[in-house]
């Protein structure tokens, strides 16, 4: 029977996991344990609903509703002095709960603190662009759309950034094939010559050093050369390997194979 491969997650899987394996957790701490973070969280809580908040590896993580992301960013920027948005990214949880997880990584230079704001949004839901607050969101959100397919509202120039404009699919989705799908394999051919040329051109040669000995049109065989386009025969006459135009080049002597001497005594 063929092995079952789930279609909603084609990522590589560990080939063996112990039945009783329980993964340990990275410790989460209460936000109250850090004064600065506690104050920031209180400021956020005044205006927005906070679903969950904790400190993990010295950084505060706040999970909010996806509709609140702009408000929270504004609070962080104006009231809590988080002056840089260092990273935006998305995670694909579609297979598990039909949701994306979007995270925003903020940095406050004056407080030397980092906060991660996260929200879960449905597949057809969009987040608001943070571009008016932080210019770095411009490219970060474009990358998020390009790689994960998370839609962003009110972005000034929402286009793919790393992949070509007319690419199909979002590479960081767990459903995205690891070897490239049909559209990816024929991308250049379709784009330049049209789909009907697929048969003429044929699939891409993934081995650029491959030599076809029967193809005398494109390949010559060293030592057994025949005319271009002539039919290939198994027992071909040897042709001399040394080649140089008659008359030759100045100073350089023509190489004659017959005149060569084989040295057997290495010490000579």
């Amino acid at each position: 029977m063929r092995k079952y491969v789930p279609k909603d997650d084609v990522q590589k899987k560990p080939y063996y996991t112990d039945r009783y394996w329980v993964a340990p957790q990275v410790a989460k701490f209460d936000v109250e344990s850090d004064e600065v973070f506690a104050a920031d969280l209180a400021t956020i809580k005044e205006k927005c609903e906070v679903i969950e908040a904790y400190i993990q590896v010295d950084q505060m993580v706040v999970i909010i509703k996806p509709t609140d992301n702009f408000t929270v960013a504004q609070i962080l920027k104006d009231e809590c002095a988080y002056n840089q948005l260092s990273e935006v990214g998305a995670m694909d949880w579609i297979a598990k709960q039909n949701q994306y997880e979007v995270f925003y990584q903020f940095l406050s230079m004056s407080k030397r603190k980092r906060v991660r704001i996260k929200c879960f949004l449905d597949v057809d839901q969009a987040v608001e662009s943070l571009n008016p607050l932080y210019r770095s969101a411009d490219w970060a959100e474009r990358e998020m759309w390009d790689m994960s397919g998370v839609k962003v509202n009110n972005h000034p120039y929402m286009k793919r950034i790393l992949m070509p404009d007319d690419w199909v699919g979002h590479p960081l989705l767990k459903t995205y094939p690891l070897q490239g799908d049909e559209a990816a394999a024929w991308y250049e051919v379709d784009r330049i010559f049209g789909k009907e040329a697929r048969d003429v051109i044929g699939p891409e040669n993934r081995e650029p050093a491959r030599v076809d000995r029967y193809d005398t049109e494109r390949f010559g065989r060293l030592g057994h050369e025949i005319e271009r386009g002539a039919e290939f025969k198994e027992d071909q006459a040897k042709t001399p390997l040394a080649y140089q135009e008659e008359g030759g080049v100045l100073i350089i002597k023509k190489f004659h194979e017959d005149d060569t001497v084989e040295i057997t005594d290495r010490k000579r």
């Binding site: 560990p14 080939y15 063996y16 394996w21 993964a23 340990p24 957790q25 990275v26 989460k28 993990q56 590896v57 950084q59 993580v61 260092s86 990273e87 990584q105 980092r114 991660r116």
Partner: peptide, 13 residues
């Protein structure tokens, strides 16, 4: 098989 770090998230600059 590779190492299996604990469940969690980290951002390290």
């Amino acid at each position: 098989q590779g190492m299996r770090p604990p469940v969690g998230e980290v951002y390290v600059p």
